[in-house]
Structure formats: C-alpha cells, structure tokens
Simulated assay, not measured.
Amino acid sequence: MSAPVPVVAPNGVPGPQAVTGDTTARGFVLYVALDEATAATAGTTFSELVQDVHAYVQSLVPTAESHAVVALAPADTPGSDLDAVRAALGDPTVARRARPEAAPAPSQAQRARPTGALIDLSRREVHLDGEMLNLTFREFEILNYLVENATRTVGREELL
C-alpha cells in the first residue's frame, strides 16, 4: 500500500492535480446521476443508497463525517444527468468541464444562466448570477466572516 497522494478535482485538466502548499484536501464530493424511478427499478431507494454509502465509509474510516444532499433539477434540464446534478448542487467547475464535440454549444441567448450567489470558501471565489466577482482580499475576508457567523447579527464594530 502506498502513501496517500494529495489531489483535488480536475479543473478541465485530465487526471488529478496536486494540492498547493497553502491548501489541504478536507474531503470529497461524489456525484451520483440517478433518478428515483431507476433506483426503484433496481430495488432500492435514495435513502437506502445513502445509508449504504455512509456505512461503507464508516467501515473504512470510523471517524469520517458525511453529509448527503439530493439534487433537485427541472425535468427538462439540458445535458447529461450528471451535469444536471452538478449544476443543481452549485458545482463551480461544471462550466469548465470539456463537452463532447458532437453537440453544438448553445448560443449565449439560449444558455441558461445560474442565478444567485455561490461562495466557494476553499477556492476563495464568489460567483453572482454565474459571473465570478473580483473581490479584494479584505472584501473576501469580511464576506467569509459574515458567512461563518450567518446565524447571528454581526455589528460594525465587530467587523472593524
């Protein structure tokens, strides 16, 4: 058995990428493209699948924490099921994924743009309505502090 190699999910580059010295891998995301009808046909449910995956991870690493989320997307969402799951869960790398050449890219007017805010604390990126914002270091630090303390009111003096 070899020692673990630090990697992160690819950003349009085939294969794993090394983690930089100022970051550390703290977990991973597993996207599963599956609808409830297909799961039922296979004799299972989302709940049973999640419990089985959780039990398997716990059998390998008893101290590991896990969290499951079901992706809800409109039935007519274009692209593969996996792309729909990634987009519904706000994966900022979904747009960077290389598309097959056979399918022509939709025009800018046809392309559905995500709405809302996506704050990726690990990458220090903020996306608003699908556009990446260029925040200064201090602006990002304030936003990060507000997100981490979202359950309470943060006063001006505390921010200063």
Rank of each mutant, 00 (worst) to 15 (best):
V29R: 11
T77I: 05
T77E: 08
A105N: 05
V29G: 01
F140N: 05
V126L: 02
V154G: 08
T41F: 03
F137V: 14
P16Q: 12
P106N: 14
D22P: 04
S122P: 11
T63H: 14
Q108W: 07
Y31R: 12
T93Q: 03
R96G: 00
A95D: 01
E131T: 07
A73Y: 15
G130H: 06
T63W: 09
L118M: 04
A103E: 14
R99E: 13
R99M: 08
L146P: 02
V7M: 13
V5F: 12
A87M: 07
H127S: 03
D120P: 00
A71M: 06
Y145W: 13
Y145P: 01
V69I: 09
H127V: 09
R113Y: 04
P78D: 14
P78A: 09
L118W: 02
S59I: 00
A68W: 15
Y145G: 01
T93V: 01
R111P: 00
A109P: 01
N149E: 03
A102D: 13
E65N: 12
N149L: 01
A39K: 12
T77L: 06
P62Q: 05
D35Q: 08
D120H: 01
P4K: 08
L133D: 01
P106R: 15
A55W: 07
P6E: 11
H67K: 11
F28L: 10
H54F: 04
G130R: 07
A103M: 09
T77C: 06
A88K: 11
A88D: 13
E48F: 04
T38Q: 15
L34S: 09
H54G: 01
A39N: 09
V126G: 00
R124D: 03
E158K: 00
L133S: 01
A150M: 04
L30K: 13
T63P: 02
E36G: 03
P16A: 08
D76S: 12
I142M: 12
Q108T: 13
F28S: 06
E101T: 13
Q110D: 15
R96K: 08
T38E: 13
A55V: 05
